[in-house]
């Protein structure tokens, strides 16, 4: 058995035996070099309560080259691509060290969720959202956690009508301000189209001041 397989074996056994870290590693298919890791969202963050899955590919020259990690679960985070799940983390690139294990890298991912690094973003849009209005960013992150990672959702009274909640969801997922969407909706445009255009133009935070309303309407009329 080659050294790489032996090491992966040990690492999986290590995760199985460690019940305190809450990190799980499973096989995806037949290959022991393509795995699925999962961990709970860290407490005290918008990701709390969610269950996050990560695609793990172990390269030929492991452990001298880093593992390839990618989120399977959609995550709203400055250092995670909201489209592909690609992760921007130094230890997955040039700061990798062969003493790092699957468990320790997954723990690092977990702590990346705790401390976003908007200055070195993977998803520029999300990072902008984070730096401009953190509250609205957290709203979106909580919604994404709820929808994609099975999180508990925002703490609010359940008395609201369900339709209102759904529309709020749409806006929050796009990372937009509710008032802005309603402003253009009042001009007679479809809500979905408004969200689409505002998202494309990145109409949020200080950007709102830079973009004239005419420009938005122009886009809407296209």
């Amino acid at each position: 058995m080659d050294a790489r397989l032996r090491r992966v074996n040990k690492e999986i056994a290590d995760c199985k035996n460690d019940k305190t870290s809450n990190i799980k590693i499973d096989l995806i298919e037949e290959s022991p070099f393509h795995l699925k890791g999962s961990f709970p969202g860290p407490e005290g963050t918008p990701y709390q309560g969610g269950h996050f899955e990560v695609d793990i590919v172990i390269p030929e020259s492991y452990p001298f080259q880093p593992v390839k990690l990618k989120f399977i679960t959609k995550v709203y985070h400055p250092n995670v691509s909201s489209a592909s799940g690609a992760i921007c983390l130094d230890i997955l690139k040039d700061a990798w060290s062969p003493v790092l294990t699957l468990k320790s890298t997954l723990i690092s991912l977990q702590s990346l969720l705790c401390s976003p690094e908007p200055n070195d973003p993977q998803d520029a849009e999300v990072a902008k959202h984070y730096t401009t209005s953190k509250n609205s960013f957290e709203d979106t992150a909580i919604y994404w956690t709820q929808i994609y990672a099975g999180g508990p959702g925002p703490k609010e009274k359940k008395g609201k009508a369900s339709t209102a909640r759904e529309t709020r969801d749409e806006i929050a997922i796009a990372g937009l301000e509710r008032a802005h969407v309603e402003q253009f909706e009042a001009l007679g445009f479809e809500r979905s189209k408004v969200i689409d255009v505002l998202r494309r133009l990145n109409y949020r935070g200080p950007n709102v001041a830079k973009l004239s309303e005419d420009r938005v309407v122009e886009e809407l009329l296209k």
Binding site: M1, N9, A13, D14, S31, P32
Partner: peptide, 14 residues
Amino acid sequence: MNTLLSANVPDPTD
């Protein structure tokens, strides 16, 4: 390839 993974590789958890 579960057999591969279950192969007995000695480690501290023994």
